[in-house]
Nucleic acid binder design. Sequence first.
RNA 1: GGGCGCAUAGCUCAGUUGGCUAGAGCGCUUCCCUUACAAGGAAGAUGUCGGGGGUUCGAGUCCCUCUGCGCCCACCA
Length: 848
Amino acid sequence: MAGIPERPTLDGIEDRWSEVWEADGVYRFDRTAARDQVFSIDTPPPTVSGSLHMGHVFSYTHTDTIARYQRMAGKDVFYPMGWDDNGLPTERRVQNYYGVRCDPSQPYVAGFEPPFRGDPPKDHRAVAISRPNFLELCDELVETDEKIFEALLRRLGLSVDWTLKYATIDERSRRASQRAFLRNIERGEAYSQEAPTLWDIDFRTAVAQAEMEDRERPGAYHKIAFPRSDGEGAIEIDTTRPELLAACVALVAHPDDERYQPLFGTTVRTPLYGVEVPVHAHELAQPDKGTGIAMICTFGDTSDVTWWRELNLPMRAIIGRDGRLLPDAPNDVDNAAYATIAGLTTKQAQTAVVQQLTESGALLGEPRPLQHPVKFYERGERPLEIVTSRQWYIRNGGRDAELRAELVARAGEVTWHPAHMRHRYENWVEGLNGDWLVSRQRFFGVPVPVWYPLDAAGEPVYDAPLLPDEALLPIDPSTDVPAGYESAQRDQPGGFTGDADILDTWATSSLTPEIAGRWEEEGSDLFGRIFPMDMRPQGHDIIRTWLFSTMVRSHHEFGVAPWSNAALSGWILDPDRKKMSKSKGNVVTPLDLFETYGTDAVRYWAASGRPGVDTAFSEDQMKVGRKLATKLLNVTKFVLMFGEGEGVAASTDAVTNPLDLSMLAKLDETVAEATAGFEAFDYARALERTEAFFWWFCDDYVELVKGRAYNSQGSDGATSAVAALQTALSTVQRLIAPIVPFAAEESWSWWNDGSVHAAAWPSTTGLGGDAKLVDPIIEVLTLVRRAKTEAKVSQRAEVTSVTVSAADDLHSAIELGRADLADAGTIKEFRVVAGQDLSCDVILAPTT
RNA sequence: GGGCGCAUAGCUCAGUUGGCUAGAGCGCUUCCCUUACAAGGAAGAUGUCGGGGGUUCGAGUCCCUCUGCGCCCACCA
């Protein structure tokens, strides 16, 4: 117990209490707790590729309020923190930060010093470094970034147990990721396949459907004439990608389209290249698009893939993995014509092809510009291409209706907050059109844990991958050697080769419950105590990635949904209702706001955003939060002045005055509502109810009974008032603690031992007072205040007499408040007379 | 094209199963240094509850419909 300070202040309480909480292990998870005593949280590991922003502060605060509530409600809270540091975002940051790029053909340099540490000049050309050197820099940068993240989240007051920290690149994560993936392979849930794949030409990796997004880009329709093989004129098609003409394998129109029905089964010749291609019918073709007949190329977009597959068309690939046209034409394409565009970028090739078509007369009219959506990797800068490559997939229902239905049904095991977020999940799952591509041609990630035997010709036998023993995990197939082989046999005919790819970052972060819970780690029984988890908090934008992928892995491995509740948080919006974006320069750093308003105030703003609802960034709300925190300190100081230093754990037995009981009845309602709010993961409602009571308590009730508490009406009245004040104070401090943990702890510490965050969640007093009894009395107080305000005198000014006119049924209540009102309003004479609506005749004492 | 959400005071939002004259905070106006708090306190003004129709004794709340805004998905020649 710290005692009451002279001048309560919020300054510095964050650092002070953070240290105490850490030292006392207030948030430490008890690993012996049984499953039904535990509340486990599948914390979203932030991507370690930059800085934490207000969106993080917003949603992490939401989760923390729930964690704190559950802890006070008696649960042993499993609240870990992780860092999502593997994958492309980190690689890109390393490239930009150090001015390097990974080139696996480079030799390792021991003790390598990067050219820069932070902000290389714009004209700097990235230095090519070996994969091990690159990975070392990844590790280095991630370590410093994570320290900064941890400091900020501690400052935010998150009640995480920092001893449970993990990172998605750490050894345990790699082990869990590889173990789960191997089991997917063994059960047939993961497979590798050579297939057309969405490909980012800058990152030079395959990407998944979930990571793809549309962006509006300018383009142009080009009308091209394909001469008919029978010599009867030409077929005109519109295309936005004339550069793919050499990759054309067919034309396609809708089967019902009478314009083209006579031509189905005939052939045409491609301009410039003279390749004979058939005219096909397919329902996917849209008669109202362009000329109603399209050229199919391998591959211009995803519908080309569909047509190519369903119409059994040949392959004429011309785009390489670097986004440039391949050096050699496909087999049956005139290589002389193709040579003029070989090696060009798609953009350069388009210019060249258009010029050639114009010269040959095959281009009809001028290109017609248009804006159209183009597919991008969500982190990419140039449009995705489609190339054929061998990749690993995990089955997610995209090619299997039965599995899809099972995954949709899993949503029913989860309570969604807010409920409509379930639709987004179902919508996504039902719209899947392919399995989950998990391999990436990148470097900083969990290696695909397989090798392939090489046949006599040195070709990999992909159908018979060599899998490691689980006990040896994690492995790196580029350095580790499969059982039964010698290191010298690597990449030798008859030997083996390691899979060079890594797993997509989601393939690991989809296992956060397993990673955090030390799934199948030797000597740990933790997982059984925390899984399935109670809560998955996350942004609604990653339902299709993180939420869904976690569901897929849990479904395959455990046949159960990984959590019982999913809490989806909204976006932060600019005050002008636009989604907050970094480019607009309107991003305020969290630390500045913590300094300006105090952490509690920022948390207050965050907690006022209802679950799942986009919320405007508002410093005004933070000011209100700061007021609340300040008020909590001040009213605590005031109430404790009456306790003679020892009013701790006030007994409600002493509360006898009906007004005090009425206040406690209101408090009981508040406790019930706040509890119901938190139970439903609605921290905003809990806050709103608590706050409404708190301000009423401070502004009205405390003012009303202040005099009595000062002993103006004898010791029984004072005892009742003080006991009621203390009961309410103790309760409010605990109700508000999940939202403003620092001010709550500070004020609690003045008169209690131990942390408020380890205290029991308040229960109702059950004293059965009449909550409404005190209302007309407060109303009279307000009328007296109004009279003074209108007379422009101090509230302390003396009142000669007050005549209250009120309906008969209020008289007894007002009588009960007579003495308190006289004190609070400095009223000499107080009368109650019969009347209709409540009104007051206030006669002020003459001022001198 | 399909799905979901939102629309209440100048602003940000509450309004839970339909029920007294529709609420809060911010902002605004006026006043007050009052022995917890002047980085405070008291009081006040402000609404065709997006439009139209329906159910009902009664609709911000339920049903239909229209409009506007936002998000997700599909389409992408």
